[in-house]
């Protein structure tokens, strides 16, 4: 908490030093980009958590029924650390007594959302490079990258819309060091302005997807806890050893803690802050003669919350 407060204070101090300095607009852009990067990582981690919870839950239930689960050796979610499973590359089989077998799979309802947040991440990185490009070639490359990322965001969010983002790059013949900052700000404003409606409107896609993932994880975790609690009762009733009962009870406690972490996941809140941060960034870029105080404040707030998400996901 102190760390975020410190970041905020630093942000406020910087906002007061030279309202139009390069640092001033770099700061909210860097923080926005960092926040999106953390969100992207948190979203992917949430999906891996869901896949693992689904497999653990199923394996647990099958064991209780005398059946077993077989996973292919190359199943990515059994890797340590687990990596993202793509549709179809991690199917498993449920083996029933008597040799019956049912193929199951990890469903990837989140493909669209993951593509969306990944493109937003690329967009954020593009803005950072634009804000710090040292020559025309680097700037052009960064503008192309950010423009392409926003086109991707747009087409992922609205398939078939054919929305294309065209950033005018013909004005880059100017020399760095002369009107560089003014031109850079204009370029940033043009890109952020084109991206903002998509981000404001389509972030709800990510919110729905995060809620869906969260509900699925909670459901699996709930079933795991039910059966673990029953194990504790069974062991107690059958005079199981203290050690066995203790281990079983500890499993319940650990999974109850994991359940609470999932339930308090704040991705939805961070996404709302991402929208405000981007809107304030646009406002500041369009009126750079005023200052970036609001943009810095909201970007700092967003980055802090997104950073917390990763702490929750890693269980630290």
């Amino acid at each position: 908490m102190m760390q975020y407060r410190s970041r905020f204070i630093v942000a406020l101090l910087l906002s007061g030093i030279g309202a139009c300095s390069t640092l001033n607009y770099q700061q909210p852009i860097t923080q926005f980009s960092q926040g999106v990067s953390d969100l992207n990582a948190a979203f992917n981690a949430l999906k891996v958590t869901r896949d693992n919870a689904a497999i653990n839950n199923l394996a647990n239930s099958l064991k209780l029924q005398g059946t077993f689960l077989s996973l292919p050796t190359d199943c990515p979610i059994t890797d340590n650390p687990p990596r993202e499973a793509k549709p179809g590359d991690c199917s498993w089989s449920i083996h029933y007594p008597g040799g019956n077998k049912v193929a199951a799979n990890v469903k990837n309802h989140e493909a669209q959302s993951l593509a969306f947040i990944s493109a937003l991440n690329a967009y954020g990185q593009g803005l950072v490079v634009i804000s710090s490009a040292q020559d025309v070639a680097a700037l052009k490359a960064a503008v192309a990258k950010a423009g392409s990322a926003i086109s991707t965001v747009s087409s992922v969010a609205m398939p078939g819309s054919g929305t294309a983002v065209n950033i005018i790059t013909t004005g880059f013949a100017w020399l760095f060091g002369e009107i560089a900052d003014a031109e850079r700000l204009k370029t940033l404003a043009a890109i952020v302005e084109q991206a903002d409606p998509v981000i404001q409107k389509e972030t709800s896609l990510l919110q729905k997807s995060a809620e869906h993932l969260q509900a699925e994880i909670l459901n699996d975790q709930q079933y795991i806890i039910y059966s673990e609690m029953a194990q504790v009762t069974l062991l107690s009733k059958s005079n199981g050893s203290y050690s066995d009962i203790n281990t079983a009870a500890q499993n319940v406690v650990n999974d109850a803690i994991a359940y609470d972490k999932t339930a308090s996941n704040g991705i939805g809140g961070a996404l709302v802050k991402m929208k405000s941060s981007h809107a304030d960034l646009l406002k500041s870029l369009k009126k750079p003669d005023i200052n970036f105080e609001d943009a810095i404040s909201t970007a700092s707030d967003f980055a802090a919350q997104a950073s917390t998400l990763m702490t929750i996901e890693k269980g630290n």
Binding site: A54, N57, L58, N60, S61, L62, L64, Q65, I94, A104, N219, D220, Y223, Y226, S227, A230
Partner: peptide, 9 residues
Amino acid sequence: SALGSELKA
């Protein structure tokens, strides 16, 4: 619990 888990899978 077992049936619920399996149905979900």
